[in-house]
Structure formats: structure tokens, C-alpha cells
Design a protein around this nucleic acid. Structure first.
Lengths: 333, 333
DNA sequence: ACCCGGGGTGTTATCGTCAACACACCGAGT
DNA sequence: ACTCGGTGTGTTGACGATAACACCCCGGGT
């Protein structure tokens, strides 16, 4: 049973292939009766458009590349899911390519170029890789969580403000100052969260201890606990490292939140069942993905929407503090 | 700067487009000097093959569809990453489509059909959806973690054996019997893990309490703790539910592992930092993905490899018990 | 009667690649 | 000399969709 082409449908409906094309693409210049006949034929034969042929002719694939460094972080995998949903709603498909630290970003873009994707969304914490991306190709690009820059469309959570809120919350809870377990040095999100933390300390006139640096993984959080032995409040740059802190502090015999309060970032689904349940900053991944996809498709289909559709070059979405027991000393323990 | 085609390269190298095609596809019938000239021209012009055109001509896209119900479970997102890596190593790309419970699997396959993928890997815990898949299309298919069946190539972890090992471990630790916090009723993996648990109890002649059923999420695990108030050992069908159990038991004042031992399944990266660190059964997602991709490409490129390459219809990979504190009463607490 | 405009439809050419075939050349066997 | 097999290369014609253009028909204005 070979593929059904427009010509087959056309023959069945007694029209030309061009008319079938017009029906498929919703052209208004088709007689309603003809349209109905063609639609019946499409159903009868089980017609499906051949995207490869369409892509060859039009130069557009209705496909978006997603460049991702890793899916091991919960944030990235949730973003992927949200991006898929947003793209499917617009009849676009997502091609995932990985750009690891050692492979670099170039082979990833090379693959996307081969595939003639209409654009790419970069989900990559390493700012320097993004700068390489500027070098690579003339492909429409939306970068998530990267330093805003000229010629670069970015979408991001307001990491700094979320971090500020988390830190202020800890200070309000009675801590003299707040220590910080930061993310990797090359991550934009980590830098922003650190910036927000510093700002909150500065506002309150609190002492600033240099942050300890982790790698997003929970194990690095557990290791950091030892270095934070004298802290009474710690803001961790993500939930997984915060979990590690909970573990590390428990091993040291320090009770959370009574001896030390802990706050994370992301609000992963499991955070509510950590011991104790984790106070954290919630990112709205669905909204972030939705905006990224919308912006990218604007760019890709842009009929010169450089001014109208894409008013601002950087889009920033609010984050929300979620208070749970890990920062609530009075938690009926 | 428009796209560089084979014709452009051909003109630059003073040969025909067909010769360029032969060079690109590594045909042996090309003079080494000619080949070198063409390769130089490709580099000079920055030639990249146009996959859409290639797909139109050959009917093959070097693209694999990945049908996934959700990426919220750690297992699925790790599988996705591993599948990407395995596919990229073979110069295939991955297109992700989601098949939620309410949308059903049909629109997902519809999208893949449009995209003319060479085959699909189904990562879907709901067995019934997979049966629908049989209805859908003549596309080469590899199903991960599904009931082996005729005309169906499957790849799976040995869930039953892993569960058996986990249960036996708990019994060996001194428990009179082991309760089970099972996964959703429609999940093949959940059913297999339950089967392994039952088998281990039967071998030991232990009392069987009907399992409590969760939804893979940690919250359902926390809720289940209340129903398991008298258990001294619980085998949870995944790590996230086990985390919920740890939380629930803590709220009930039951100490893990002293009052009740807990074992999970998957070995998520964070399990080592749960409180206490979680004994669990490790799945080798990389190997699973590698096998799934290899089998699928065999099928897709199969020149009739029905007998040779695909000897067995179902492939089963071993799981490994990882013992940590949540099941080790003597853990120097 | 004539032209005009526009709705509805068909024809042609083309996107980039590759399979099939054609062909020119050369050295070896008869 | 004459076929023959093999090697290196060019030519032609699809694959399926669609942009551009051509065309027919019909009602309304002159």
C-alpha cells in the first residue's frame, strides 16, 4: 500500500492536484462543493501530506530544533515537555539534539542545518556556548536563560527576583545572614540567582559570605553542607542541590529548619515530599516554553516582524516563592 | 546567501551532480582524484545535504519518532536522553511527540506519519495504547516496557527480576513479609514489578497483603504511607513514590529503616541523597535505549533481516539491586 | 455588442537528490 | 581485429507539493 499523493486524491475527486493543494492549505478561492468533494476523497483514500515534499518546495519544514545540554536536570526535561506541547499546538514538530560540553554546540547546529529546521530553541546553561551559536548559521534562534544581547532573542525566568524573594524570606525568618550554594560558574541562571541573593543581602545590610559552588546535582549539595557548617540559612540555586544539603546537614546532626533553614529553586514535583518539605521558588516552565515557541515561530514566519511582533528582545517571566517547612521553624514539629 | 546544492558543488568541481552524490554517499566507483576535488569544493562552498530532498527521493528520512506519554517521570526523561545519544551516533535524529492519556496515541502517530519517520520508539506505560498502535500504520515499531506479543518488537528491563531481588533483600533483612506500593494498573512495568514481588513472597512462603496503588508521583507515596501503617518492609514500584513513603512515614513517626524498611526502583540520581539514602533497583537506561535504537534501525533498514538480525522478538536487560541505608537497620545511626 | 474584473480551476516548471540507464574508455582474452 | 568486463562519469527522469501563470466563465457597465 504505497503512499497516497495529492495526485491520487485529485483523480479520485475529479480535480487537479493544485486544487487539492488549495484545499489542504485553506485557500479561499475554492468552491465549497469542490472543497467538500476533495475532503471526502482525502478521507476515503487516507491522504496525508508529505512534509518532505512540502519542505523541498517551500523551504520550510514546520520543525523546530531544540538544543539541549542535558536532560538530567529536572528543569530541562520539564522545559522539553512544555516546548513539545506548545509546538504541537501549532502543528510544529520538535527535533532534539544534544550539545554536550565536550562535543560543543557546532555539531548540534550542523545536524539542525541538515534537517533544515525553521529555527531553534537553545536550552543551555553555558553562556559561552550561546556566543558560539551566534557564529553558527543564520537560523532563527530563541535562547532560554541567557544573557540578553543585541541580535539575540531571549526568554527567561526572573531568576534574580526569585532569588531575592527567597533570600528576603530567610532574612525575615530571623537569620542574621544567608549563605548561598551557587550553580556552575558558566550558567547564566546560576549567575542571576547569585545576583539576586547578593542584592537582597545588600538591601538588608547583611554580611556576605562567598558562595559555595555546586554542579546542580544533589551530591554536590551534600558535599557543600560540610562547608556550610556554621550557616543558619542557606539559599541553594536549585532543588536538587537543596536536597543534597538536607542530606548533608542530617549527617552532621544539624536539624532543618531549627538549626538551619534551607530554600531551593525550581519547585520540582518531589520538593513537597523532601524531609522536611522544601521551601523553593517556582518557575513557570509551561509559560516559558509557550513564550519561547511563540517568539521563535514569529521569527521564523516573520514577514519582517522585526519591529511589530518582537517589541522587546528579552522576555522575563516572574517566579513565585513557595514556602514549606524547610524554612519555617514553627512547623509544629 | 541561498542554499548550496549538489549542482553548485558539481559546477565548482567541474563534474556532474551525480558524481557529487556518489561522493556524498561513499560510492566506490569514483576516482580518488575526482573525489578529492569534489570534497574540496564541498568544503569551499560549505555544502550541506538537503535532507528533505533526500527524503523525497529515497523515502527515508533518517529520523526516528519517539512517542512518549509524559516526561515528568525521571525514567522517561532519562530514556529520551539516552535514545538521542544512541540515534545521533548513527546519524539519525529524534522527533518527540507526546501521547497523553486523553489525546490518545493516534494523533501522535498521525504526526509521525506526516513527518515520514523511518520508525518509532514507544515509551508508554499504558499497555492498551500500545495495542492501539498495532492498528496504526505499517511503521517499524519498537516498544519499550510492553507486553511481548507477536508482530511486536519489545525491549525492556527485567522488572520482575529486579522486584524479586528487592523483595528477597527485604526478607533477608528480617522482615516477616513485604508490602508493595504498586504503580498504575495499566502500566506493564508496574505489573511486572508486582509479579516479581509476588514471586519472591511465594518462594519464601510469606503472607501476601494486597498492594496499595500509586500513580508514580511522590505525593501518592506519601498518601500510601498511612495505609501501610503496620508494615515493617515496603517495596515501592519507583523511587519517587518511595520518597513519598519516606515523607509519609516520617510524619507518622515511623523511623526508616528501624521501624520500616523501604526499597524503590529506578535509582534516580537523587536517591543517594534521600533521607535516608534509598535502597533501589537500578535500570540501565543507556543500554535500554541503545538496544531500542539498534533494533529499530535494523527493522527500518532491514533488507529482510526478519530472521538474522532480530532473532528474538523481546529483549530483556538485567536490573541491579543497589543497597543503601533505607533497608539497612544496622546503619550506624 | 463589447470590454472588464474577478472567482474558480488547470498547466507548467521547479525545489535537491538519486536510481536507472547510457556511454566512453581501456586492457585482457580469443 | 573483436568482443568482453570493468571502471569512471554524464544524462534523464522521477519523488510530492506548490508558485506563477494561464485560462474559462459569467454578470455588469458602457
Amino acid at each position: 500500500m504505497p503512499r497516497v499523493s495529492m495526485a491520487d486524491v485529485a483523480a479520485h475527486a475529479g480535480v487537479s492536484a493544485q486544487t487539492v493543494s488549495r484545499v489542504v492549505n485553506g485557500s479561499p478561492r475554492v468552491d465549497p462543493q469542490t472543497r467538500a468533494r476533495v475532503e471526502d476523497a482525502m478521507v476515503a483514500l487516507g491522504y496525508r501530506i508529505h512534509r518532505a515534499a512540502q519542505a523541498l518546495r517551500t523551504g520550510r519544514t514546520r520543525t523546530i530544533g531544540l538544543v539541549v545540554s542535558t536532560l538530567a536536570t529536572v528543569g530541562n526535561s520539564r522545559m522539553l515537555q512544555a516546548v513539545c506541547a506548545a509546538a504541537e499546538a501549532r502543528d510544529y514538530a520538535i527535533v532534539v539534539v544534544t550539545a554536550t560540553a565536550d562535543s560543543g554546540i557546532r555539531p548540534a547546529f550542523s545536524r539542525l542545518h541538515d534537517r533544515a529546521v525553521d529555527g531553534a530553541i537553545v536550552l543551555n546553561e553555558a553562556t559561552r556556548l550561546v556566543q558560539l551559536a551566534g557564529t553558527t548559521g543564520d537560523m532563527p534562534l530563541v535562547v532560554v536563560d541567557a544573557e540578553p544581547a543585541a541580535h539575540l532573542v531571549t526568554v527567561q525566568t526572573d531568576h534574580a527576583d526569585g532569588a531575592r524573594a527567597a533570600t528576603a524570606h530567610l532574612l525575615a525568618g530571623g537569620a542574621a545572614t544567608v549563605h548561598h550554594l551557587a550553580g556552575p560558574a558558566d550558567s547564566f541562571a546560576a549567575a542571576e540567582r547569585e545576583r539576586g541573593w547578593r542584592a537582597a543581602l545588600a538591601e538588608a545590610g547583611a554580611v556576605v559570605h562567598e558562595p559555595v559552588r555546586g554542579d546542580w546535582g544533589s551530591t554536590s549539595g551534600a558535599a557543600a553542607a560540610v562547608l556550610l557548617g556554621d550557616a543558619t540559612a542557606v539559599f541553594a540555586a536549585n532543588d536538587q542541590m537543596a536536597l543534597g544539603l538536607l542530606h548533608g546537614f542530617a549527617d552532621l546532626g544539624r536539624r532543618v529548619p531549627d538549626d538551619v533553614a534551607v530554600v531551593g529553586f525550581d519547585d520540582v514535583p518531589e520538593a513537597v515530599d523532601y524531609l522536611p518539605p522544601l521551601t523553593t521558588v517556582r518557575q513557570d516552565f509551561d509559560a516559558l516554553a509557550e513564550r519561547a515557541v511563540a517568539r521563535l515561530i514569529d521569527l521564523a514566519e516573520g514577514t519582517g516582524a522585526r519591529d511589530a511582533a518582537s517589541g522587546s528582545v528579552a522576555e522575563v517571566l516572574a517566579a513565585e516563592l513557595v514556602v514549606r517547612d524547610s524554612s519555617r521553624p514553627a512547623a509544629g514539629g
